[in-house]
């Protein structure tokens, strides 16, 4: 299978195999008017299998969202056919308005326009806790 080189755009590499549809949806890639290629189950020396998303346009990406969903992703920014920037994502220390606190006793369940903020409590076990009530985030988005 041959997928063309990108002149200006973004390549999301090292996506955990099977996660590309979720990332496609979260980043609202269906709203873009450029070429987008999603490659699933590509062979990878490092990961065995991986997904890749190629976006034919440089767009603003919320790295916190991406890092939270799949912290192993590599973001490659391509300009004029050359690699302009590479960033390996890790779990962000804080995530805002990505996870919702499920604790009915939490102030975030009632306070007007209060942003949903979670802090990384345990990087090894990927545990996030609500900054208001310390409740553990139940599941990823």
């Amino acid at each position: 299978m041959i997928i063309g080189q990108i002149k200006d755009g973004i390549v999301l590499d090292h996506i955990t195999a099977g996660k590309s549809p979720e990332i496609y949806q979260i980043l609202c890639l269906d709203k873009l008017d450029c070429t987008i290629a999603t490659i699933q189950n590509a062979e990878s020396l490092k990961m065995g299998r991986k997904d890749i998303i190629k976006i034919g346009k440089v767009i603003d990406i919320n790295f916190d969202v991406l890092g939270y969903i799949d912290p192993g992703i590599t973001v490659n920014v391509i300009r004029d056919g050359k690699l302009a920037k590479r960033e390996r994502l890790t779990l962000p220390e804080r995530v805002t308005d990505i996870i919702k606190c499920k604790n009915p006793r939490c102030i975030s369940s009632v306070e007007q326009e209060l942003r949903q903020e979670f802090r990384l409590a345990d990087r090894e076990r990927k545990i996030y806790r609500c900054i208001y009530c310390d409740s553990e985030a139940k599941k990823q988005i």
């Binding site: 604790n103 006793r105 939490c106 102030i107 975030s108 369940s109 009632v110 306070e111 209060l114 609500c130 900054i131 208001y132 009530c133 310390d134």
Partner: peptide, 10 residues
């Protein structure tokens, strides 16, 4: 004092 957790932080 508030019944909701995190209210004083807010």
């Amino acid at each position: 004092r508030h019944p909701k957790e995190g209210a004083p932080l807010v």
